[in-house]
Amino acid sequence: MVTLKELSTRPEPLTGGHRMCPGCGAPIIVRQVLLAAKDPVVVVSATGCLEVSTTIFPFTAWKVPFLHNAFENSAATASGVEAAYHSLKRQGRFDKNIQIVAFGGDGGTYDIGFQSLSGAMERGHDLLYVCYNNEAYMNTGVQRSGATPKGATTTTAPAGKVSQGKLQWRKDLTEIMVAHELPYVAQATTGNWADLTKKAEKAFATRGPKFINVLQPCRLGWGYRPEDTAVLGRLAFETCFWPIYEVENGVYKVTKPRDKKPVAEFLKTQERFRHLFKPGNEQLLADIQQGVDAHWAKLLAKEAMTAGVKK
């Protein structure tokens, strides 16, 4: 386990001077993941907040090799980078070890980029895909995505007089990635650097396709004070709204909060859930709690079920 002191001596992957919102969680995730790599990294990013705000020509915040192609294809693009890397290495034309990391927001990962992601993971490319998951299309103005949680208001599933935000449960992409039989899959959040860097280290030490889904509080879409980005990440974990866990070769390891807090503790911190606390929405709130509890129970059951399996 790497110390912060040691991390601080590694080359910075990202400079200041990018145009992300003050307090944005995405660059925190990028730094914590990439600093965990011992080898040089090559980064591919999907179109999204991260990409547009860090690469406004002629200014790029990336100090590592970086490629942006389009919205839905960062996994496929990264698989091409990986193929070239292997080809050149096999031919003796490139002699270094590198880590290939693809970033995508939840839109570019859960929705429009899903096929590209699934294909790249199935083909078994040696790369790490990191979803910085802020649970809606923030780059285009907070539209719902497959990752948007039930009850959240977005601009395309707004809370109104007869509707209370998104009606559906979010897609469980992490479990879909587990179903791809990847050697390493994990969920993490902001606000727990030790957990995230450790997971990134594990991913980098694993050969093959890896996927980490990191919950990223978004000031714009979630509605909270900028200093709380780390706090909200931890609260999502403590309420089991966003469990943090890893699946190594099919074996689950779930990090349990000391006291599982009611999900309302998390929801009430954000504008996107404000309407849930109005009179008349008690049942919806109860449904959400029930959904969180059921998901958590299932996760613990999977952990128990796979406990004896050889990794």
Binding site: A83, A84, G119
Partner: peptide, 17 residues
């Protein structure tokens, strides 16, 4: 690849490399 979209995407990645 799993589609032509990804074919061209992977080509872009490989060529950029």
């Amino acid at each position: 690849v799993e589609s032509e979209h990804s074919a061209m995407s992977a080509c872009v990645g490989a060529s950029a490399a």
